[in-house]
């Protein structure tokens, strides 16, 4: 009888009926550390697959295995590494939309350091289309939020444009030169002489021979003397910069700022990345699309070349 009494307290004190009281009903179990009104991610995941779910959608199984280089060719398919921002169904729905868009628009393989020409529909231009050519200095975003930044130097002025990869106004993405650089982001081109980011608009595309690996440009870029947009001397991880001589005082201060132990931090590395097993599962969907569509396109490209 004791248990009945205590559980009675849970419910609304009504004269005649025991009734649901949503406020007091769910306070004790599966509560995360902060806030009541949230389901923990793992509980949702468990529920989606459990037999208790009446509206369960069974996961489809695919046979193909994903090649390892896919994680570099399609980086935007990888979800955000922070598990607090992730949801399996949301990722899946986004991937579906992304692959649909890839059927319509040919989004080629490119990397930070490649030179691209992008054509966009523009309402405010008389010809209704505008083309921009530049060096890709950054790739960012996950899923439909994926974007890339192009940089060029025009009329003595540095110009950068950020494009959403899945923006439907994108008409064409042309790779003029396919290559990688030593770093994952080239923001230091802002503080380098203009010649390193100047590209002519009538540049002709260079093609690589069939089956060749993507070359890495080993060029080290000399920076202008400071002031800079960032303290580049602090960035030990950057390999592609050639620092000028700095005043003694600045170099002395450097020893206080630098964190040389960070490159040995395994946990930091782990938190940045998504595990290989999970990657394979994600790229299974891409493989099907790739085998169907991309090969055809590749052959077409080859025909054009010959």
């Amino acid at each position: 009888m004791a248990s009945l009494k205590t559980s009675c307290r849970v419910l609304q004190t009504s004269r005649h009926l025991p009734v649901f009281n949503p406020r007091a009903f769910y306070r004790s179990y599966d509560r995360p550390q902060k806030g009541h009104e949230k389901v923990p991610s793992w509980t949702i995941e468990k529920h989606r697959d459990s037999p208790l779910n009446a509206t369960r959608v069974e996961s489809e199984r695919l046979r193909h295995a994903a090649p390892t280089e896919f994680r570099y060719i399609f980086p935007e398919f990888l979800p955000h590494p922070d598990w607090k921002k992730r949801d399996r169904v949301a990722e899946k729905l986004q991937r579906r939309d992304m692959l649909r868009r890839r059927l319509v628009l040919d989004i080629p393989e490119f990397y930070v350091g490649s030179i691209l020409g992008v054509t966009v529909a523009d309402q405010h231009v008389p010809s209704k289309q505008s083309r921009f050519v530049g060096i890709c200095i950054h790739r960012d975003g996950h899923g439909l939020r994926a974007n890339f930044t192009l940089r060029n130097h025009i009329d003595g002025q540095g110009v950068e444009i950020k494009y959403d990869l899945y923006n439907p106004t994108l008409q064409n993405i042309e790779v003029l030169k396919l290559e990688k650089r030593l770093d994952e982001e080239l923001f230091y081109l802002r503080d380098a002489p203009a010649t390193h980011s100047t590209i002519t608009f009538d540049r002709k595309p260079e093609t690589l021979p069939l089956g060749a690996t993507v070359p890495v440009n080993m060029k080290k870029i000399p920076l202008n003397p400071p002031p800079w947009t960032q303290r580049w001397e602090k960035r030990e991880d950057l390999k592609g910069i050639d620092l000028p001589e700095l005043p003694e005082k600045r170099m002395r201060k450097l020893s206080q700022i630098v964190k040389p132990w960070e490159k040995y931090d395994l946990m930091k590395e782990y938190r940045k990345n998504i595990s290989e097993e999970e990657q394979n599962e994600i790229f299974k969907e891409v493989v099907q699309h790739h085998t169907r569509v991309e090969k055809k396109r590749h052959q077409e490209r080859l025909k054009r070349m010959t």
């Binding site: 849970v10 649901f20 949503p22």
Partner: peptide, 20 residues
């Protein structure tokens, strides 16, 4: 708890995690 379950049992509905 049994009383909570009885509320669901009344109409033969599987018990739910959250009720609004």
């Amino acid at each position: 708890s049994p009383l909570e379950l009885s509320l669901f049992e009344k109409h033969g509905v599987p018990p739910k995690r959250k009720v609004f």
